[in-house]
Computed example of a mutant assay.
Amino acid sequence: MTTKDVKNEKLPTVLITGGSKGIGFELAKQFAMHGYNLVLAARSEADLKQAAGQLENEYGCGVSTYPFDLTADDSSTELHRQVIDEGIQVDVLVNNAGMGDVGPFAKSDLNRQLNMLRLNIVTLTSLTRLFLPAMIERGNGRVLNVASLAAYFAGGSNWASYVASKHYVLAFTRGMARELAGTGVKVTALCPGATPTSFAGQAGANAMPIYRWMPRLTPAKVALAGYRATMAGRTTSVPGLLNKVFALLGELPPRSIAQWVFEILSRTPSATATETRRAL
Rank of each mutant, 00 (worst) to 15 (best):
I84R: 14
K29Y: 04
Y66L: 10
L124S: 11
G18K: 11
G87F: 05
L48Q: 12
G60I: 08
A271D: 10
S44Q: 05
V245H: 01
T197C: 08
T77Q: 13
G60P: 12
S157G: 14
P215Y: 03
D74E: 14
N8T: 12
L48W: 11
R267L: 05
K107C: 01
Q113G: 02
A232K: 15
A220E: 15
R234C: 04
G18I: 11
A72N: 13
E58H: 06
L242V: 13
H80R: 05
K166V: 10
T274Y: 04
G226I: 05
V122P: 00
Q89W: 00
Y66D: 05
Y36G: 05
Y211F: 14
L252K: 08
R129T: 09
V163E: 04
V14C: 10
F262G: 02
K49G: 08
R174G: 15
A147S: 15
I257H: 04
Q54E: 15
G98P: 12
G182A: 04
F172A: 13
F31G: 06
A97E: 10
Y162R: 03
D91T: 02
N37G: 08
S161Q: 06
S266W: 03
M116N: 06
A147N: 03
S44E: 03
A160G: 06
D47M: 08
A205I: 06
M176P: 02
G175Q: 10
Y211E: 08
S64H: 12
S270Y: 01
R228E: 14
T272Y: 01
K10S: 14
K7H: 11
Y59K: 09
H34R: 14
T218P: 04
V122W: 05
V222E: 04
E275N: 07
I136L: 09
T65W: 07
M99Y: 01
L55T: 07
R278E: 14
A106Q: 09
P215H: 04
Y211I: 00
L38N: 09
N111L: 10
V122E: 11
I264Y: 12
L11H: 13
Q82P: 01
S270L: 07
L119V: 12
N96H: 07
D109C: 06
L114M: 15
V261P: 01
N37S: 12
E86W: 00
A106Y: 03
N111T: 12
N206L: 15
A232D: 14
T13K: 10
V6L: 11
T230Q: 05
Q50C: 00
E56M: 15
N115E: 13
R255W: 02
F68W: 06
L241H: 09
M135G: 08
P239H: 10
E9F: 00
N145V: 13
T183W: 07
T276E: 13
F246N: 01
D85M: 07
S161G: 00
R178Q: 14
L48H: 11
R174Q: 15
V63A: 11
K29A: 12
N206F: 00
M231A: 09
F172S: 06
